[in-house]
């Protein structure tokens, strides 16, 4: 049984479907990267797992199984026992995701005291330890600082300390480094990876940066216009991306061997824009796709699972590409 299994999840806002039929799974201890252009539904997917969607969003179908229980059917009180304890969330903007009027210590203590039987003093001592764990210098003095006293990178470390405080099994990191400069980015991601190994948690790492994926993820799920279009392990994916969109992503990326700085992919270099997916009957990528055929515009292609031992669990929503690679993969409709 997977730690987290999202099955055919669809989420809609009034007049707009943000996530369509998304399925993916995360095993205990692994890092799954969820990749896609901004606006493709990554955050909405993450918030669905936490059941923290904006009030105007509705889950229209699907199940989210965490350790076998369906989170979408969990009563609010049960959900509150899971949040912060079994599943934690780190958001994109460290500048706004901490409460400006409470000290960082108080904000860490709060989650500790919520889920663990700790005295005020013990919780404070534990908060200091956690700040130390995420390499905040002078933790015992910093614990009384307010968010505005800290830099963006430091705040994101505080967010991480808060997220791992109760030893969650799953950490959802929604573009945790997008707002940070490149050096800080690598430090924060190293820290996350280190903590993942030490605490034995799984990470759902949301990013639009393929460089980050190559360095820190075990598996990848590529999202386009609310759909998951390809799932693969990192090695095979970077060796041979199957979906035309994935190929576009990798092609748009400067050579893998150059300085990490240039790994930052430029998704916009694929001709056209994600906006063309709106109102598309068939494959959402068809309007931008170099290999699109007439059939692609009829109905959205299903995610085909490729059963190949050497490539690991792999799936792609593009029959054209599957046919092209033909002989090496035996395709089975999933």
């Amino acid at each position: 049984m997977s730690l987290l299994a999202v099955e055919r999840l669809s989420v809609a806002f009034p007049g707009q479907v943000a996530v369509r039929d998304a399925s993916f799974a995360i095993e205990a201890g692994e890092t799954l990267a969820l990749v896609g252009e901004s606006g493709c539904g990554k955050s909405v997917t993450a918030f669905s797992v936490m059941r923290l969607l904006p009030p105007n969003a509705r889950v229209t179908s699907g199940r989210i199984l965490f350790e076998g229980t369906d989170l979408l059917a969990e009563p609010p009180a049960g959900m509150r026992r899971i949040r912060g304890k079994r599943i934690s969330l780190i958001q994109q903007e460290p500048m706004t995701s901490l409460n400006p009027v409470l000290s960082i210590g108080a904000q860490i203590v709060e989650v500790l005291r919520r889920h663990e039987k700790l005295s005020r003093r013990a919780a404070r001592a534990r908060a200091t330890e956690l700040l130390d764990l995420v390499s905040i210098p002078d933790a015992h003095r910093r614990v009384d600082d307010y968010p505005h006293n800290l830099s963006g990178g430091m705040r994101q470390r505080v967010m991480i300390a808060m997220a791992v405080a109760c030893g969650p099994k799953l950490l959802i990191a929604d573009e945790p480094t997008t707002a940070l400069d490149v050096t800080t980015q690598a430090q924060v991601l190293d820290l996350l990876d280190d903590l993942r190994h030490r605490l034995g948690m799984a990470v759902l790492l949301i990013t639009h940066d393929l460089g980050v994926v190559a360095q820190w993820a075990d598996r990848i799920a590529v999202m386009y216009a609310g759909r998951i279009v390809e799932k693969a392990s990192i090695g095979p994916f970077f060796a041979e991306p199957l979906h035309p969109y994935s190929r576009g992503l990798l092609g748009a990326r400067v050579d893998v061997d150059t300085d990490e700085h240039y790994l930052a992919n430029r998704l916009s270099e694929i001709p056209g824009s994600v906006g063309s997916a709106a109102g598309e009957q068939g494959c959402p990528f068809a309007p931008r796709c170099p290999v699109a055929q007439a059939a692609c515009r009829q109905a959205p292609p299903p995610l085909l699972e490729l059963d190949a031992v050497d490539t690991g669990a792999r799936a792609v929503a593009c029959p054209v590409s599957v046919a092209q690679t033909g002989g090496r993969h035996a395709a089975a409709v999933g």
Binding site: L52, R80, R83, G84, S97, E110, V111
Partner: peptide, 19 residues
């Protein structure tokens, strides 16, 4: 965003509103 962070800690909504 910090309201989502607070909800993400599993705190009670009433407590979150107050604090």
């Amino acid at each position: 965003d910090f309201m989502r962070t607070a909800h993400g800690k599993g705190l009670h909504p009433f407590f979150i509103q107050l604090r």
